[in-house]
C-alpha cells in the first residue's frame, strides 16, 4: 500500500501531464474544444427537461422556482455523470492500456488515478456550467454547496472501487465489459435523477435503499436544489459501502496485477 503511494508520488509529473494531454488530445482540432464536455451533459438535461418537465413538474414539492425540474435534473446528472464516467472508463482501462502495461514499467495504479483525475476535472467544468445555468434560472449559489466536496469524494470512491473491481475482472472475463453498460443504464433509471424520489411506489422504497447512489443523488438534490444540508444518516451507509468497495478494488488490483499482464 505504501509502495503504491510512493510510486504515485514519484510519477506525479506523469499523472498531471497525462491528464492534461488527454484534454489537449481529446479536443485537438475541434472548434469548440472543451465546450463539448459541457454541451453533452447539458443537452441531455435539456432533452429530459423538455420532454419530461410537463409530466413531472407538478410533482416536485418544496421549490418555488418554475424551472425547478430543470434544476433537479441537473443536480442529479452532475452526480450520475461523475459516477458512470469513472465506472465505464475503469471498466476498459486495463484492456485499452494493455500494450503499455506489457511494454513499459511504471506504477500501474497511476492508470486509474489518471482516469479519476480527468473525470474529476470534467465534473468540475460541468459543475461550473451548472452554476451558470442555475444563476440564469434564478437559483443563486449557497454555502450549502460546500457539501459537494465531500459528496464528490463519496461518489468518486464508490465509482473507483466498483470500477477497479469490474475493470480487473474484465481483463479475464470480457463479458463484464459488455454487461456493465447495460447495468449502468438500468441503474440510471433506478436512481431518482429524472424523476422525484417520492413518485416511487411504497413497495419499491425499501428496495431502493440498496442502491448506494440513491442517497448520494438525494444529497446532491438537497444541497443544490433545496439548499439544505444533506441527511448524513442516509449517506452514512453509502460512505461505508464506498470505502469497502475501494479496499476490495485495491486488493483485487494488487492481487491481479501480475496475471493481468499475462492475459492482455
Amino acid at each position: 500500500m505504501f509502495g503504491m503511494l510512493k510510486g504515485l508520488w514519484e510519477y506525479r509529473s506523469f499523472i498531471v501531464t497525462s491528464i492534461r494531454n488527454e484534454f489537449i488530445a481529446r479536443f485537438a482540432r475541434s472548434r469548440l474544444g472543451g465546450l463539448w464536455m459541457i454541451i453533452h451533459p447539458l443537452s441531455q438535461v435539456a432533452i429530459y427537461a423538455l420532454i419530461l418537465s410537463n409530466v413531472l413538474a407538478a410533482r416536485l414539492p418544496g421549490i418555488d422556482n418554475k424551472y425547478a425540474y430543470a434544476l433537479y435534473l441537473m443536480a442529479g446528472v452532475l452526480a450520475w455523470n461523475l459516477f458512470s464516467e469513472i465506472v465505464s472508463r475503469c471498466l476498459n482501462l486495463f484492456i485499452e492500456q494493455g500494450n503499455l502495461m506489457k511494454k513499459m514499467r511504471f506504477p500501474r495504479i497511476a492508470l486509474p488515478v489518471i482516469v479519476v483525475g480527468s473525470c474529476l476535472l470534467n465534473n468540475l467544468l460541468l459543475f461550473v456550467a451548472v452554476l451558470v445555468v442555475f444563476a440564469a434560472l434564478g437559483q443563486m449559489p449557497s454555502l450549502d454547496m460546500f457539501w459537494l466536496i465531500p459528496l464528490t469524494l463519496v461518489v468518486t470512491a464508490l465509482a473507483v472501487g466498483l470500477g477497479l473491481v469490474l475493470g480487473v475482472v474484465n481483463v479475464f472475463v470480457r463479458d463484464i465489459g459488455q454487461v456493465v453498460p447495460i447495468i449502468l443504464q438500468v441503474w440510471f433509471w433506478f436512481t431518482p435523477i429524472v424523476y422525484s424520489a417520492n413518485v416511487i411506489p411504497e413497495y419499491l422504497r425499501s428496495f431502493m435503499n440498496f442502491n448506494p447512489m440513491f442517497s448520494v443523488v438525494n444529497a446532491y438534490h438537497d444541497v443544490l436544489v433545496y439548499q439544505v444540508s444533506p441527511d448524513l444518516n442516509e449517506i452514512g451507509i453509502t460512505i461505508g459501502a464506498s470505502i469497502l468497495l475501494m479496499l476490495l478494488g485495491l486488493f483485487m488490483f494488487r492481487r491481479a496485477a501480475p496475471e493481468m499482464v499475462d492475459s492482455l
Binding site: E10, Y11, R12, S13, F14, V16, T17, S18, N21, I24, L100, M104, F106
Partner: peptide, 15 residues
Amino acid sequence: QNVYHAAGLMGFNNH
C-alpha cells in the same frame, strides 16, 4: 509534449 509524456512514463518528473 510527447517527450514530456514519454519521459514521465520512464519515471522522470517535469523538472
